[in-house]
Simulated scan of single mutants.
Amino acid sequence: MHTKDNWVTTPVTAGLLRGALDVEHTEHGVLPHRLPARARAQCADAQLAMAESQPSGVRLVFRSRATAVELDALPTRRVYAGAPPRPEGVYDLFVDGRLACQATGTGGNTLVIDMAAGTTETRPGAVGTVRFTGLPDRVKDIEIWLPQGETTELALLRTDAAIEPAPEGDRRVWLHHGSSISHGSDAASPSNIWPALAASLGGVELINLGLGGSALLDPFTARALRDTPADLISVKIGINLVNTDLMRLRAFGPAVHGFLDTIREGRPSTPLLVISPVLCPIHEDTPGPSAPDLSNLSSGKIKFEAMGDPAERASGKLTLGVIREELARIVRQRSADDPHLYYLDGRELYGEADHAELPLPDQLHPDAATHRRMGERFARLAFASGCPFAAERG
């Protein structure tokens, strides 16, 4: 162990990051983005801006024999007015592909969200430090997974030995897009969101475009998927379209076709898996929008309700059942000319039997145990021999 005076200070740069599509330079360092600047310029929605700047699946990757690592970072943590504090974001550190330790940081901005008033306020804070010690004293590959739900500006790495970029390796790249469930809502830590667990079991590199509240068939997201080099692509479509009450059936089908057409413009033969929504009882047969029930907010309990009327399906309002039927039909139609297009019913990842055992705590989002189950299920259904993402299809 070197003395602190002999530690090596390394600015965080894009070359040390994986899982980000863009990097913004700020007064504190760099801010990873999961959508490119052109996409961000085409939508002023605050929910999307928050979601894509939260580094789900983004990690710092380098090689070193360091036994101690410090990361200076400025997170932005969410606080809900009238509710108890949320748990601080967790940083997962891997050594040669295995989880070695976890830590939380200090400092940070605070984003205060008043759900009743529909307002937000940002309270600035200071850059803090995340510390990891006791790492093995040998040359090793180190990955630091950033908190999936905290926008995080990265300043400096301090290590007790020099670092160098880790080699890229030869693992296939899986590019996934979905909603807050794919983003990692309520997962235990960034490497325990279901896509990260599935990627680990499948032996692939993850780029996660799970965007909380923002999987809305946006054309700029389709272009980001089209333009990002990847060996495997999946798109999980449905729940956000219902709980935002964004469109009707007449618009939905053509929008799905357009989304897939755009991806195929750049990735004509890449295995492409369309995933329908997991089970969500409040929206199976009842349209959106969703609205939070804040009556128990002071105890930290938020539940969501479906505000639509099942009778509105007749006028084209979307439910999860309607979306599954339409997605299955679209994939059947397109697969006649696209042999690399596949469909997965989301209820195979989380269905009625799972809900009976592991109900959705807030009626919309799974808990940590369900993330693990979904990741394990997806690995079996997608990466096993004969499945859409099997190695022989590479």
Score class of each variant (00 low, 15 high):
S56P: 05
L35R: 06
V30F: 01
A44R: 11
P136M: 03
A103Q: 11
R63M: 14
G118E: 04
L93G: 00
R59T: 02
P11M: 06
L31F: 04
Q42I: 02
L74M: 00
V69D: 06
G82D: 05
L48C: 04
T76W: 08
H33V: 09
L93S: 00
T67V: 02
H33S: 13
L135V: 01
T133M: 03
P75F: 02
T133E: 14
L31A: 07
R59L: 10
A117N: 04
A44T: 13
P87A: 11
V90M: 05
D92G: 03
D92K: 03
G97L: 00
A126V: 11
L74K: 03
A44N: 14
T76K: 11
T104C: 12
T110M: 13
H25W: 12
D45A: 09
P136Y: 08
G128S: 09
H33T: 13
L17E: 00
H33F: 13
V79T: 12
A14N: 14
G19F: 09
S64G: 02
T129Y: 01
H33M: 12
P11T: 08
A49S: 15
Q54V: 08
V23T: 15
A73K: 00
R18Y: 07
A51R: 03
A41T: 05
T67Y: 02
E70D: 12
P75L: 05
S64P: 07
T129D: 05
T104P: 02
M115R: 14
V69M: 09
P84L: 05
Q42K: 11
G82F: 06
L71K: 01
A44F: 12
T122Y: 01
Q102M: 12
V79M: 11
G57F: 03
H33W: 12
L35I: 06
E24P: 03
R86K: 14
A68F: 04
L17A: 07
A81H: 10
T10W: 06
E88L: 14
C43I: 11
P136A: 10
P84C: 05
T13P: 05
P11D: 07
A37C: 01
Q47L: 15
T110E: 14
T76S: 11
A14I: 09
S56F: 07
V58S: 02
I113M: 15
A81E: 15
A51E: 07
D137G: 05
D22M: 08
A126K: 11
A41F: 01
A68N: 10
D22P: 06
R65A: 14
P36M: 10
E121K: 14
E88G: 14
A37W: 08
L16K: 02
Q42N: 15
V30C: 10
V112W: 08
G57D: 03
V30Q: 07
P55F: 00
P87M: 01
G128W: 05
P124L: 03
T122D: 06
E27M: 01
R98D: 13
